[in-house]
Design a protein around this nucleic acid. Structure first.
Lengths: 112, 112
DNA sequence: GTATCGTACAACCAAATGGTTGTATATGAA
DNA sequence: TTCATATACAACCATTTGGTTGTACGATAC
């Protein structure tokens, strides 16, 4: 799997985009299947414009993409960007794992 | 591994907390080793109070914990919360994976 | 051709964010 | 005891966020 490096600003945007329940739901739905913005909007208790803004934010974060189909805009989830976020979290967890290893080494030294 | 369910609000907070480079750095450093707030603050180009606020936010998101040691407050990264976030991202990726499986099924049907 | 649908976008607003400075307080050092 | 250090916290400020309504416009349906 090829991994592209994200700029710090892009990384901020990705996590920011995920920090909202409506946007996480949109990501989930558009990863499941392609959906138009108006179809998405029908299920949330907010204006169409508000949903449109959420989609725009997700698009600028790279978590979804939009393509025109007739008068509709079809939204599609972007699994690659999810994987970038996953990778960052994995690297954090790895830092912790290595700390535990160092602690094990220390305890092993103490035991001798 | 036991997995606790996070409230939607807590999930928002976790991702919000990760959407800032300084906070991600603090998480990385405190997962690597325990550090006092003032030690953390020395390395950032902002006031002590600003770093203190970042730590407070991370603490309320469950990404770090603080314990008192003398006049210092020692900050420690919390790998469990990282794993919660990982798990949510994994579930999103899984949605996409299942969509691909459905697509494979569809193509297999077409081929018959 | 006209009406409707789906979208884009601007202007506006309240609340949250991310920083600042200043003050208070507890601990540790001299 | 006195001074310096580490933290907590309040007040303040500019910017961003997450919502709203209103207007405009291309695509589709009648």
């Amino acid at each position: 799997m090829v991994v592209y490096e994200l700029s710090e600003e892009q990384t901020n945007k990705v996590f920011r985009a995920l920090a909202d329940a409506t946007r996480r739901d949109i990501v989930a739905r558009t990863l499941h299947a392609e959906v138009s913005i108006s179809t998405l909007a029908a299920d949330y208790d907010m204006s169409f414009a508000a949903v449109q803004k959420h989609v725009a934010f997700l698009e600028s974060a790279g978590l979804v993409s939009k393509i025109a189909r007739g008068r509709e805009r079809i939204v599609r989830g972007q699994p690659d960007t999810i994987r970038h976020a996953q990778q960052l979290l994995s690297s954090l967890e790895e830092i912790w794992r290595q700390r535990i290893n160092r602690l094990d080494d220390f305890l092993a030294d103490e035991a001798t």
